[in-house]
Simulated scan of single mutants.
Amino acid sequence: MLKLLRFPLLGTRLALKIVFLWLFFGMLGGLIPANTATPYATGTTDVLLVGGKIHYDILLPADPQTRRTLRFTQPAGIPTDHPGVEWFLIGWGAEQFYTSAGTYADVKAGDVLRAITGDNAVLRVDALGELHENAAIRRLSLTHVQYNSLLASISNSFSRDTFGKAQVLDHPGFTQSDRFFHAKGHFSALRTCNVWLGDQLRNAGVRFGVWTPTTWSFGLSLKEHQGV
């Protein structure tokens, strides 16, 4: 009987060690910076970072440049030219998990397992008006050069057909103004939504942690390297 019990115990211990190492290296990844050079500021554009329990979204200001960049999402129903839009929300995640429901309570265990082991990536785009006060919102100021690079990197994350058209998921979304799009790459425990967003900031030349798989490590990197 004792021999039979060893195998589940060993499996549990191994799983706990893997989780511990994942969290530990996530912390280190948040503390170790990329893009250590100080950028030459020629004006700034503010973006907002909105954190939840396990996921960060980025909010882009609905200025003329952003509206032009995201206009390719308009055929899918994103109101990029609507005058009431003040922010565009962009989020990246695992297809089955991200699109399963609007609340964590509705997420199934199978969706979580598939996300951890690997799933197709999707992008969620939403158009927002005036924002309500939210303690989880962090403001990050980018130079114009950094913001141009950020827009290019995010735009390049969309999967497109041979005609350059963004590929929309057959999914109703969570609001009247959002849609899901197929994205490049795959989601896994090593490349989470927070890792993707960290990639976008690093691609823009922002000083940020080299690997931020959790909201905690992402927030740690923001505080350590950006002071926000």
Rank of each mutant, 00 (worst) to 15 (best):
T45K: 09
T45N: 07
L48S: 02
V50Y: 11
G51W: 06
Y56V: 13
L60Y: 00
A62G: 00
A62N: 00
R67Y: 02
R67Q: 05
L70Q: 01
L70S: 02
F72T: 02
Q74V: 03
P79E: 08
D81Q: 15
H82F: 06
P83A: 03
G84K: 08
E86K: 15
I90Y: 00
G91R: 05
Y98R: 09
Y98W: 10
T99H: 06
S100G: 01
S100P: 00
T103D: 14
Y104W: 13
A105M: 15
V107T: 08
V107E: 05
V107S: 10
A109V: 12
G110D: 07
G110N: 08
D111P: 01
L113P: 11
L113Y: 13
A115N: 03
A115R: 11
I116T: 08
I116F: 09
I116C: 06
G118N: 05
N120A: 12
N120M: 10
G129S: 06
E130C: 13
E133T: 14
A135W: 02
A135T: 14
A136P: 02
L142T: 07
H144I: 12
Q146K: 07
A152T: 08
S153H: 11
S155D: 15
R160F: 04
R160G: 10
R160S: 12
K165Y: 01
A166D: 03
Q167W: 00
H171V: 00
